[in-house]
Amino acid sequence: MSVDWNMVSAIGQVSSAAIALVGLGFIGWQIKEGRKTADLQSLQVFLQTATDHERRMIDAETQDRKDEAFFEFLNFLEIHASAVNGGLFPKVSRMIVVEKLRDSIAMIEAFSDWHEKFQRAVLTPSTFISLQKFMQKERKEIAKLRALRLNP
């Protein structure tokens, strides 16, 4: 009995390709799962950082400290508005960040002192440009939230 080594070699190559394909699929699945975990961790950090900024504004003992905390919070909102506007967040994360941005802006607009400080902080057309762009796009939803804050 003669062995057709070309056939054996071809079967080996097909088998190797099939195993490699399965391996690539597994690696793709691992990457996808890793992204989900990283996304969740990023959301947790985002929400914790937002809470920390809000707490600093509330707990500040002097007006200068309150103002400093407020402007740091505005910078935090600007960075995340820029990420939302640039499409940097996956779908679920985007939804949560957008809701937090809307709520924070509505809160600022509902309190006249904070709203005036925000308006005074816009020194040039490019100051808080991402936040302003986000506010224009989300104007209706922000207005609804602000109305709820003013008329609970």
Rank of each mutant, 00 (worst) to 15 (best):
M1K: 07
S2H: 12
S2Y: 10
V3Y: 08
D4R: 01
D4K: 00
N6W: 03
N6Q: 14
N6T: 11
V8F: 08
S9D: 11
S9W: 12
A10E: 07
A17H: 06
I19A: 12
A20S: 14
V22D: 08
G23R: 07
G25D: 04
F26K: 07
F26V: 00
G28T: 10
Q30Y: 02
Q30D: 06
Q30F: 01
Q30M: 12
K32M: 12
G34Y: 00
R35Y: 14
K36G: 05
K36C: 00
T37V: 09
T37Q: 13
A38S: 05
D39E: 11
L40Y: 03
Q41F: 11
S42D: 06
L43D: 03
Q44F: 07
F46D: 04
L47Q: 14
T49H: 13
D52T: 11
E54P: 03
E54A: 09
R55I: 14
R56L: 01
I58F: 10
D59Q: 03
R65Y: 15
R65T: 15
D67R: 07
A69V: 03
A69M: 08
F70D: 04
F70V: 06
F70Y: 09
F70S: 04
F71R: 08
L74M: 08
L74Y: 01
L74W: 03
F76M: 05
F76T: 07
E78P: 04
I79H: 11
H80A: 01
A81C: 08
S82I: 02
S82D: 12
A83C: 02
V84L: 04
N85S: 10
G87Q: 03
K91G: 02
S93R: 10
S93L: 12
R94P: 04
V97I: 09
V97C: 02
E99D: 14
K100Y: 07
R102P: 01
I105A: 03
I105D: 01
M107H: 13
M107K: 14
I108T: 02
I108M: 02
D113M: 14
D113T: 15
K117C: 08
Q119F: 00
V122M: 10
V122N: 04
L123K: 13
T124D: 00
T124W: 00
P125M: 03
P125N: 04
S126E: 15
I129G: 02
I129E: 07
I129N: 04
S130A: 07
S130V: 02
L131K: 03
K133D: 09
K133E: 13
F134W: 02
F134Y: 01
F134V: 00
F134R: 01
Q136Y: 14
K137D: 08
E138H: 11
K140T: 10
I142N: 02
A143I: 10
L145A: 09
L145P: 05
A147P: 06
A147Q: 13
A147K: 05
L148S: 11
R149E: 14
N151Y: 09
N151E: 15
P152C: 00
